[in-house]
Computed example of a mutant assay.
Amino acid sequence: MIEIALRAGSANAHQRFTQRLGENLLEFRVNFLAYQEGPIWTLDIYRDGAPVALGMGLNAGAVLTEGYNLPADIGRLIFVGAEATLDNLGKDNHLVWLPA
Rank of each mutant, 00 (worst) to 15 (best):
Q19Y: 05
G22C: 06
K91V: 12
G81Y: 06
L77S: 05
F32L: 04
I45S: 04
I78Y: 15
F32G: 00
G75T: 09
A84P: 01
G81A: 04
G67K: 11
R76V: 07
H14A: 08
A60T: 01
K91M: 05
G57W: 03
I45A: 07
I45Y: 07
T42G: 00
A5D: 02
A13D: 02
N24A: 14
N59P: 10
R76A: 10
E83Y: 08
N88R: 06
L70E: 08
T85N: 00
L58W: 01
F28K: 05
D73C: 11
G49R: 03
A100I: 09
Q19G: 04
W97Y: 09
A100V: 09
G81E: 01
L98V: 06
F28M: 08
A100M: 13
F17A: 04
K91C: 02
V96I: 14
L6W: 01
Y35E: 14
G81P: 02
I78T: 11
L25R: 13
E27G: 07
L77V: 07
A13T: 14
N59W: 14
R47Y: 07
L21A: 08
L58K: 00
L43P: 00
D44M: 10
L26N: 02
P99G: 09
N59K: 15
Y68F: 11
G38Y: 11
A13C: 05
N24F: 09
K91W: 03
A11S: 14
E83A: 10
A5G: 01
L33V: 13
N93M: 02
W41C: 03
D73M: 14
G81N: 02
N93L: 04
V96W: 05
F79V: 00
N88G: 04
L43T: 02
R47V: 11
I74P: 01
P39T: 09
M1E: 07
G75V: 15
L26D: 03
Y35M: 08
T65A: 14
Q15F: 02
N88M: 13
I74N: 01
T18M: 06
L21R: 05
Q15S: 02
L21C: 09
D73Q: 10
E37A: 12
F28E: 06
T65H: 14
R7P: 01
Y68W: 15
E27Q: 15
R7S: 06
E3S: 11
L70R: 05
G9E: 01
D48R: 08
N31D: 09
L89F: 03
T18N: 08
Y68H: 14
R29V: 09
D92F: 04
V80K: 12
A13Y: 01
L77Y: 07
G9M: 03
L26F: 04
T42H: 01
L70G: 06
L26M: 05
F28Y: 11
Q19F: 04
E27M: 14
G38I: 14
G38W: 07
N69C: 12
D92E: 09
Y46V: 10
L64I: 05
L86M: 12
E3P: 07
R16L: 07
L70S: 07
R76G: 04
A5V: 15
G61M: 14
